[in-house]
């Protein structure tokens, strides 16, 4: 992960402005915030659900590698990319 600023020991939490929940009518998890809605695909939702301020990125990667029936490296890269994007969009922040 040469080009990432995210470290395995980082702990991310959803920013308080965002609300993540299951939405039956969309058959998906959605991220709700002032005047906006983002529909999440299954893997994005699994990642954000684990951004609880306690789990490290390394732990999150381990859990999802076990969950997804996919090559470990692909899962890890996908998680780092998604966390980067989520961080850049202000959905999550790094916890001290």
């Amino acid at each position: 992960m040469a080009d990432t600023t995210i470290q395995p020991q980082d702990k991310f939490a959803l920013n308080p402005m965002f609300l993540l929940r299951w939405e039956k009518t969309q058959d998906a998890y959605v991220l709700l915030y002032p005047e906006g809605v983002i529909k999440l695909n299954a893997s994005a939702a699994e990642i954000l659900k684990r951004c609880n301020g306690a789990a490290t990125v390394a732990e999150l990667v381990g859990e999802l590698q076990a969950l997804f029936n996919e090559d470990d490296i692909i899962v890890e890269n996908g998680i780092y990319r998604f966390l980067e994007t989520s961080h850049a969009k202000g959905w999550i922040s790094n916890q001290p």
Binding site: Q26, E35, G36, V37
Partner: peptide, 18 residues
């Protein structure tokens, strides 16, 4: 009120999301 600047990443699938 929804604004041109606000973001909605899903089409409503025919539902009144707002």
């Amino acid at each position: 009120m929804p604004k041109d600047g606000s973001v909605t990443s899903l089409d409503g699938l025919g539902k009144p999301m707002w």
